[in-house]
């Protein structure tokens, strides 16, 4: 009877054969000429529904058309993407597992967590940069704040919401208030929506959130923009100065890139890059970028590493200069 058991199982499985497994063992890594011969997994280190997730999904769709094989998005949320990054590092460098890597993990989180928990983007092959998000500082209308100078002039301690520890939202505001000499207490929230809610409800005075997240509330007059941390004034609020124009040195952006495990063959990386470039050119993707107020940053791997390593250096310097400790409460 024992013989029938595996036989039956095998028979059952044979019926289903042809569906293709996902164990990775059947992709023979020797021949890259045929890449891709099966679906590519795109890891996303954030929850479904977040900005990174949406960007990844918006991009995966058009890029897979060029690749000729599906790009399957998988969320592996945890520790701002460190969980996914660790999994990617352990994956076979064959181009069938890639990931959307967020810049903050590479250049802000290391400032907030112990060195052994930080992730170094230089240990990955960067396929392409994707886009950048800019932050805007918004205030509840009831505070009466219209500018950063207004906060300084109010001469009172303020509270500000951040989207979490080790995020661009925290770094921008901490740097800004340190430079402006405002006594400010950071109140960390879990993401952009709760932080914005806290401003709308008057729980905190101000918050820095991504441009796209606050657009509707700003246009409806429920939140007052004070300053943006973009390099140029965003088109939908031409009257709001950038931090540089307001006299502050806060060059912080969120940036995203597609990365593959270290050691992925160059041909495969190039093939992926071509596919994503086709994706960037897709009209629906372009519309998505415009709607979400994302600035394209579709640079190649070398340029991206230069940007991100430069950012890490800059932030390290600024944080040291202003004696900021991002991990302290």
């Amino acid at each position: 009877m024992k013989i029938t058991l595996p036989a039956l199982g095998l028979a059952g499985l044979l019926v289903l054969a042809g569906c293709g497994g996902n164990l990775g063992s059947d992709g023979d890594s020797g021949s890259t000429a045929a890449y891709p011969e099966r679906a590519v997994t795109l890891l996303i280190g954030q929850d479904a529904g977040g900005s990174t997730d949406l960007i990844g999904r918006a991009l995966a769709d058009p890029a897979s058309k060029d690749l000729g094989k599906p790009i399957t998005v998988q969320n592996r949320p945890g520790a701002n993407g460190a969980v996914a990054a660790k999994e990617l590092a352990a994956a076979k460098p064959d181009g069938y597992t890639i990931m959307v890597f967020v810049g903050s993990l590479a250049y802000i989180t290391p400032l907030a967590v112990p060195a052994d928990q930080a992730v170094d983007v230089n240990n990955y092959e960067v396929v392409t940069g994707i886009s950048q998000d800019d932050f805007v500082l918004v205030a509840n209308p009831r505070t009466g704040f219209k500018t950063v100078q207004g906060i300084v002039a109010a001469k009172r301690p303020i509270t500000f919401a951040t989207t979490g520890v080790g995020t661009g939202s925290q770094l921008t505001q901490t740097l800004l208030f340190a430079q402006a000499g405002v006594q400010a207490t950071a109140v960390p929230f879990n993401g952009g929506a709760p932080a914005l809610t806290a401003v709308l409800g008057g729980q905190v005075d101000v918050a820095a959130v991504q441009l796209g997240e606050a657009k509707e509330q700003i246009e409806a007059g429920k939140a007052v923009p004070l300053v943006t941390f973009a390099t140029q004034r965003p088109s939908y609020m031409p009257d709001i100065p950038t931090a540089t124009e307001a006299g502050f040195n806060v060059p912080v952006q969120q940036s995203r890139a597609v990365v593959a495990p270290k050691g992925t063959p160059k041909e495969v990386v190039d093939r992926l890059r071509t596919a994503f470039q086709k994706g960037f050119a897709d009209q629906a993707y372009k519309d998505f970028n415009a709607k979400r107020l994302l600035t394209a940053n579709e640079v190649d791997g070398a340029a991206l590493l230069q940007q991100w390593n430069g950012s890490l250096q800059t932030y390290r310097g600024l944080v040291a200069q202003h004696k900021i400790d991002l991990s302290a409460k």
């Binding site: 499985l13 289903l16 996902n22």
Partner: peptide, 17 residues
């Protein structure tokens, strides 16, 4: 399970076939 999780829901559970 195969039909449901792999076939219908496209869950990424490790599978042979």
């Amino acid at each position: 399970f195969y039909a449901l999780f792999v076939g219908a829901l496209d869950v990424t559970i490790p599978h042979l076939f």
